[in-house]
Each structure stands twice: as C-alpha cells, then as structure tokens.
C-alpha cells in the first residue's frame, strides 16, 4: 500500500456510517437495499458511502443476478498499521537526499584539502565531521593511543579533543588505552 493509498483509506474509514457498512460486509456480501435496511440509512446514502469505499480500495462489487453485491476487500484490512509506517515513501527519499546534501555541505565547509579547518561548535555538525574522520579507522582493528593520535592529527592539531569527542559520540570505544571503532 502506497502512502497516498493509506491516506485515502484512513480518511475514508474516519466515518461511522462507512465503518458500519464495512462491519456488515465483514459478515457477508450485501447489496445496497439490504445495507440500507440494516443501517437505517437511505439507499442513495449507502450508494454514496459504497462509492467512497470502492474508491479507497476497501470494497469491491460484482453482479449476482439482479443485484450488485458488495464485498469487503479483506486483504486491505490485513495490512498492519506498522507496515504502513514502514512503507518507503517519496517523502522519505527526499528527506534522505536533503540529509545527504546537508552532510556534504558541512564536510565542504569544514574540510579543506583533507584537513579539518576548525572543530564545529554545533554538535550536529561536529558529529558529521567526526564520522568522516572515523572512516580512517578499520572496523575490527585495535589501535593504541599513539596510533589514534597520529590518524587524527592528520586532520587537526587538537587530536585530544577530537579523540575524546569520538568516544563521547560512541564512534569509538576505549579500554585501557586501546581503541577500536564502533559499528
């Protein structure tokens, strides 16, 4: 179910009469007049609601002799709300792209020819800078403090601050002066 389909369906369901129609159709397939009688609504009103439900993909219809029967599209209601929330949307992709662009802008601003010009004061930007530097550390390797300092010093003279920040941000872990990169 796409994001727009989910919005249309949820919007359509936010009506007591339509919900009552669906509850009736959950029992068995029905035609307009039968639903009208059950729910004490006029047949045109039922038709109006059924059309909306059909447009939202909640019900389908088929011919049975003289009647048009309506049935619940059960598969639509088997979708969990969590599945809808986890659905990838165009908006999510756009957000990712905006995040990527922001990240690149920070990198371009603070790095020059592979050197860190200044340590960002803003935490969000500092984190991006640290994430760039930490890429120089291999994942499963252990480093002693001297090695760590040398790698960081290639970027900036204040390697102590950067090293400490990496630990605080959870990018690296330390134990008895042995450092390793975190996943």
């Amino acid at each position: 179910m796409t994001e727009n389909e989910a919005i249309a369906l949820l919007k359509c369901l936010a009506d007591k009469s339509r919900l009552q129609i669906l509850k009736s159709l959950a029992i068995e397939d029905m035609y307009v007049e039968r639903l009208a009688e059950r729910l004490n609504l006029t047949a045109p009103t039922i038709s109006f609601h059924l059309k909306k439900l059909q447009e939202a993909g909640a019900v389908s219809s088929y011919k049975n002799q003289y009647y048009t029967m309506y049935s619940l599209k059960k598969e639509v209601f088997e979708v969990r709300l969590m599945d809808i929330l986890q659905e990838k949307s165009a908006e999510a992709e756009m957000q990712q792209e905006r995040d990527r662009q922001y990240r690149q802008k920070v990198i371009d601003t603070f790095f020059e020819y592979g050197k860190l010009k200044a340590i960002p004061a803003q935490r969000k930007k500092r984190r991006i800078v640290l994430e760039e530097i930490v890429k120089d550390f291999e994942m499963s390797r252990r480093y002693d403090e001297k090695e760590v300092n040398l790698i960081i010093a290639a970027y900036h003279d204040d390697f102590c601050t950067l090293r400490r920040e990496m630990i605080m941000e959870g990018l690296m872990q330390r134990d008895h002066q042995i450092y390793w990169r975190m996943e």
Binding site: A14, D15, K16, S17, L41, T45, F48, H49, K52
Partner: peptide
C-alpha cells in the same frame, strides 16, 4: 458529533 461528516454535509 457522531463522526458522520458526509451525512452532516447532506
């Protein structure tokens, strides 16, 4: 009030 907005419009 009964969440039947379309019928309220009618």
């Amino acid at each position: 009030k009964d969440f039947r907005k379309d019928e309220a419009v009618f």
